[in-house]
Computed example of a mutant assay.
Amino acid sequence: MAQVNFRVDDSIKERAESACTAMGLTMSSAINIFLTKVANEKRIPFEVSVDPFYSEEHIAMLERRIADMKAGKKVHEHELIEAE
């Protein structure tokens, strides 16, 4: 049996371990399930996408609003919250 080592943020590891425990799994078994799915299906078994919050457009808009606030322009709360 092979051993795989990798680094992960401490907070993510703690939250993942907690979720695995709640599901009755060890972290090792959860990672084995993931790798088995990748090996069998030859794909990541969930959607991988970019969070739109971090898009260049959105970051630029936030930077403009921050600059407006720093310049003393009144910014209304509803301008800061994106409604769906």
Rank of each mutant, 00 (worst) to 15 (best):
A2C: 07
Q3W: 03
N5L: 06
N5D: 01
F6N: 05
R7V: 09
R7F: 08
R7Q: 10
V8C: 11
V8W: 10
V8E: 02
V8P: 00
D10T: 14
D10V: 09
D10S: 11
S11K: 14
I12Q: 05
K13M: 13
E14C: 01
E14T: 12
R15W: 05
R15G: 01
R15N: 08
A16I: 10
A16C: 09
E17T: 09
E17P: 00
S18A: 15
S18P: 00
A19F: 08
A19K: 15
C20K: 04
T21D: 06
G24S: 12
G24K: 14
L25R: 15
T26N: 03
T26P: 02
M27L: 11
M27Y: 04
M27R: 01
S28Q: 14
S28D: 13
A30G: 02
I31P: 00
N32Q: 10
I33H: 01
F34C: 03
L35K: 02
L35H: 00
L35Y: 05
T36Y: 06
T36C: 01
K37V: 02
V38C: 06
V38H: 01
N40I: 14
N40F: 12
E41T: 00
R43K: 14
R43E: 10
R43S: 10
I44Q: 03
F46G: 00
F46V: 05
F46T: 03
E47M: 00
E47A: 14
S49N: 05
V50N: 09
V50M: 11
D51E: 11
D51K: 10
P52C: 03
F53C: 06
F53T: 03
F53Q: 06
E56C: 01
E56F: 15
E56L: 09
E57Y: 10
E57C: 05
L62A: 14
L62G: 13
R64P: 00
R64L: 13
R64H: 04
R65I: 06
R65L: 15
R65T: 11
I66R: 12
I66P: 02
A67C: 01
D68M: 06
D68K: 07
M69E: 05
K70E: 13
K70A: 10
A71Y: 03
G72W: 08
V75G: 04
H76D: 10
H76Y: 13
E77Q: 10
E77D: 08
H78Q: 07
E79Y: 08
E79D: 09
E79S: 07
L80F: 04
L80Q: 11
I81P: 03
A83G: 12
E84Q: 09
E84A: 12
E84H: 09
E84V: 09
